[in-house]
């Protein structure tokens, strides 16, 4: 039974979309400004629960900017502001009385380059829970193991939990970062080009991991690699830069449709590698 489940999990994304799924996050006319400059213009995009949504598009089209708006990473930039509506389970994420810490706990993020803290593997993973007041060793141990198992890294590092995380290989480091994001038990995991610094073998491992995580988490991935979007995602959003340099979403559909029969000519040009 378990084996069967495992097999089902690894069915290519495009073939296994449940027809009716719940919308976990919804962006509505979401715009991001840096001062007077509009980086993202009125993006309306549903993120389906327990599915993988890929955001693709040429460089500079605002993919990462959009992704960062999802867990309010723009709060860090002094003159950035967000307009429009963004909801998680129907609740707005921007607005008075919303604690950004809470938003980021529920919506985790994995970055382009593996960024483990210069600490031991264990401390990397315990960092998040400790932030939220979990200090009991037994509980921490459990969380560490659970998240490492979740990120398919447990067997590789179980004997060296107290060694520096920086001694791991690039691919392992990135899986550690995924595990670290999982330690605070998020509902959504945002991934900003998670494989761009990795070799093909490590990339495939991360992609397999994403397909497994999809059973329990909602994943949004920004990627330059169209093949990757095609391989892992269930839905794909295509973004482009408008003449005024603001990024907009031009097409959103099932991944299989985007990659076999896109409706927008620009999407077609992009996925066939003719964009320039």
């Amino acid at each position: 039974m378990m084996q069967m489940q495992a097999k089902l999990d690894t069915i290519p994304a495009a073939l296994s979309v449940a027809p009716a799924s719940i919308v976990k996050m919804q962006a509505e006319k979401l715009s991001v400004y840096y001062g007077a400059f509009r980086a993202i213009a009125e993006v309306t995009l549903p993120i389906h629960d327990r599915h993988i949504t890929a955001i693709i598009g040429p460089s500079g089209c605002g993919k990462s900017t959009l992704l960062r708006a999802f867990n309010r990473m723009h709060d860090l930039i002094p003159n950035a502001r967000v307009e429009g509506k963004l909801t998680l389970d129907g609740e707005p994420l921007y607005g008075p009385g919303i604690d950004v810490v809470d938003v980021r706990r529920r919506i985790g993020m994995v970055f382009q380059r593996p960024n483990p803290f210069p600490k031991s593997i264990y401390d990397n993973l315990a960092y998040g829970p400790r932030l939220y007041g979990v200090n009991k060793k037994a509980t921490l141990d459990d969380l560490v193991e659970k998240s490492l198992r979740g990120a398919a890294l447990w067997d590789e590092v179980r004997d060296k939990l107290h060694q520096s995380a920086l001694a791991l290989s690039g691919g392992q480091q990135q899986r550690l970062c995924i595990a670290r994001a999982l330690t605070v038990e998020p509902e959504v995991v945002l991934m900003d080009e998670p494989c761009s610094a990795l070799d093909p073998v490590a990339t495939i491992k991360i992609e397999d991991l994403m397909r497994e995580l999809r059973n329990n988490y909602t994943i949004v991935i920004v990627t330059h690699n169209m093949q990757q979007a095609a391989r892992v995602s269930d839905y794909t959003a295509m973004m482009m830069m408008r003449p005024d340099r603001a990024g907009e979403m031009i097409e959103f559909d099932l991944t299989r449709t985007i990659f076999t029969n896109p409706q927008d000519k620009r999407t077609e040009d992009y996925v066939t590698g003719r964009f320039g």
Partner: peptide
């Protein structure tokens, strides 16, 4: 060539 979309079709 990993053809996509129209190329693939």
């Amino acid at each position: 060539q990993s053809p996509m979309a129209h190329d693939l079709r």
